[in-house]
């Protein structure tokens, strides 16, 4: 019997949120097709992760074991390991998350199998002669419905678009080892070094982000956002205008061509909210916008707004926070 296979990631020993989302979509597809759901992961797969995969309905977990397949592994090597698993299982569909690594691995898997690949999907349904998929365009401001015509469906699942949900009945998991045979040239692009960004709270995972745009006025203008982020354990972000003006490093940019964030609170200071920026912050749970223009998209789309001069508001907010923190 054929299967639906999902590549999952478990950084720091826990199942990634994006992998839970991908598993949720994959299980719906497997249930619809009446096929078992399998998961594949780089070994070693911690017991906790195996247990959670069972809760998400995976009946078999393939632990991909190879000395070169670690945190520094080259994307083509992981893709080739997965391709060999495909040869063995001949799954009807292979899903993964459109994470940093998932996106690269699936592009290589598509190239190595010469199969079509639908990236950043939010839905996938079998139809006569193939699948109908929905995927995001323009970073999420548009949906595309498309027909995927392939012997095996390859798809990545868009982050933060599917609500992760465990199966109604947890599966009993069988753990299998998959030991691929990999040519040396697959490891050419292995990472040979790492540079960590110096200290501070990560923009991608900060609970609160203070982001500045044109309205900050200068590179020095961001000092007060640094102070606010420091007071609350948050991170500083910025718009494309701020990076193009040289006020902030590109790594601070929130947007379609920068970092996508999903904090509990996003505070946009002097940012008008062009589409390119909006798609980077639209997954925030709550948005507070400070802008002199009440018609700016960042204000009209925000939950809360201060319509006025951020140079009046921000120092008062610093004082208020310090007073409440005692």
């Amino acid at each position: 019997m054929t299967t639906v296979l999902t590549l999952i990631e478990h950084p720091d020993g826990t199942l990634a949120r994006t992998s839970r989302e991908a598993l949720t979509l994959a299980r719906q597809l497997a249930d619809h097709a009446g096929q078992p759901l399998h998961a594949a992961a780089l070994a070693p797969v911690p017991d906790e992760v195996v247990k959670e995969l069972g809760e998400f309905g995976a009946s078999v977990v393939h632990a991909i074991e190879h000395p070169e397949l670690d945190a520094d592994a080259a994307a083509p090597a992981i893709a080739e390991a997965l391709r060999q698993l495909l040869d063995e299982l001949t799954p009807s569909a292979v899903l993964g998350s459109a994470s940093d690594r998932g996106t690269a691995v699936f592009a290589h898997l598509a190239a190595r199998t010469d199969l079509p690949l639908a990236a950043n999907c939010t839905a996938i349904t079998p139809v006569e002669a193939g699948w109908e998929i929905t995927r995001i365009r323009w970073g999420g401001v548009l949906y595309e419905d498309a027909h995927l015509d392939a012997p095996t469906a390859l798809a990545t699942v868009a982050p933060h678009q599917v609500v992760a949900a465990a199966a109604s009945m947890p599966a009993t998991v069988e753990l299998r080892v998959h030991a691929p045979v990999l040519d040396d040239d697959l490891h050419v692009t292995r990472s040979v070094d790492r540079e960590e960004l110096s200290g501070g709270v990560s923009l991608a995972t900060a609970p609160v982000v203070f982001a500045g745009g044109r309205g900050m006025g200068s590179a020095e203008g961001f000092a007060i956002l640094e102070e606010l982020a420091g007071l609350l354990g948050g991170a500083v972000g910025c718009s494309r205008v701020a990076t193009n003006a040289g006020w902030r490093a590109h790594n601070d940019q929130v947007g379609q061509t920068g970092t996508r964030v999903a904090p509990d609170l996003y505070i946009a200071c002097g940012i008008s909210g062009a589409t390119q920026h909006w798609v980077g912050c639209m997954n925030a749970k709550r948005i507070l916008s400070i802008n002199t223009d009440p018609e700016a998209p960042m204000v009209t789309r925000a939950d809360d707004a201060v319509v006025g001069d951020l140079h009046d508001f921000l120092p008062a907010l610093v004082a208020e926070i310090k007073a409440r923190q005692g």
């Binding site: 507070l288 916008s289 009440p294 204000v299 009209t300 789309r301 925000a302 939950d303 809360d304 707004a305 201060v306 319509v307 006025g308 001069d309 009046d312 508001f313 120092p315 008062a316």
Partner: peptide, 8 residues
């Protein structure tokens, strides 16, 4: 959008 104010 809920408007909180116009400054400080």
């Amino acid at each position: 959008t809920r408007i909180l104010g116009s400054g400080a």
